[in-house]
């Protein structure tokens, strides 16, 4: 579903991500962890076509994000760490706009808005201007917007930040269901307990370089993910 090959991204003299390779198959929830500034957001942004990059290739569902970005973007959804949405729209206007751009039929968009709106407890708040919404409410609108076109790959940057416990629980359910239906999820997080319980696979990035990746059990062994992460970071 997502294939990252020798991905390198530099900002001037600074190399943000260096020669990173990863493969995410359908049905997998893949966690991406690392310290602040390790290169997680850069990788996610490049994978969804928001950020151009220097070297390597990224394939989404077999299409290159460099040469065929539109085909890639049709099957993926991206949820950034900070839900900076269009403040001048209401939640429902934003969702309708996203559905228009993705070419979602009227019946499908009605059904999905209803379903995810109720699941995240947002249905009544969707008529409010986004400028009046709290951070968590904006995050929920961004999540519904990401799910409205039934993407096959979902890229999320810190998706649990700002969500209330009920919404976090519902999001985990959505993630499981998405993968059971053959979709894939690649998300970054600092909450190692969540990653440990939720993910099939995990990748750890340090200073732009991948230092560990694979099945969750294989990466953590007999220890906890937190212990492994701290060891790899040289903190324990």
């Amino acid at each position: 579903m997502l294939r990252i090959e020798h991905f390198t991204k530099t900002y001037g003299p600074k190399t943000a991500v260096d020669d990173l390779s990863l493969r995410i198959a359908p049905g997998e929830i893949y966690g991406f962890i690392g310290h602040n500034g390790a290169g997680k957001t850069t990788t996610l942004k490049a994978a969804c076509g928001v950020l151009p990059f220097d070297e390597g290739e990224i394939y989404v569902d077999g299409h290159s994000i460099k040469s065929d970005p539109i085909a890639c973007k049709r099957v993926l959804a991206y949820v950034p760490d900070n839900p900076d949405l269009y403040e001048f729209l209401t939640g429902i206007q934003y969702l309708s706009f996203v559905a228009d751009v993705y070419g979602v039929s009227k019946a499908d968009r009605q059904r999905r808005i209803q379903e995810y709106g109720e699941m995240l407890g947002m249905t009544d708040d969707l008529t409010l201007p986004i400028s009046d919404c709290s951070h968590g409410m904006k995050q929920k609108v961004a999540l519904i917007g990401a799910l409205i076109h039934a993407p096959r790959l979902i890229l999320m940057d810190e998706p649990f930040v700002g969500l209330d416990p009920v919404a976090s629980h519902q999001l985990k359910n959505v993630m499981h269901r998405h993968c059971e239906q053959g979709g894939a999820i690649f998300f970054s997080t600092h909450v190692l307990e969540v990653a440990e319980k939720l993910c099939h696979k995990v990748a750890i990035i340090k200073n732009g370089r991948l230092i560990a990746s694979g099945e969750m059990e294989a990466v953590r062994g007999q220890a906890s993910l937190e212990q492994v992460f701290l060891e790899l970071e040289g903190q324990s």
């Binding site: 269009y86 729209l89 706009f97 559905a99 751009v101 070419g103 009227k106 709106g117």
Partner: peptide
Amino acid sequence: RKRLELSKLTVRAPRRAIASKELRRFLG
């Protein structure tokens, strides 16, 4: 809060949707 009326949602082509979004930005 207004009542959410999903039946009133309109479907637009992508470019029209962008133009419409821009108009809302202009007015808002």
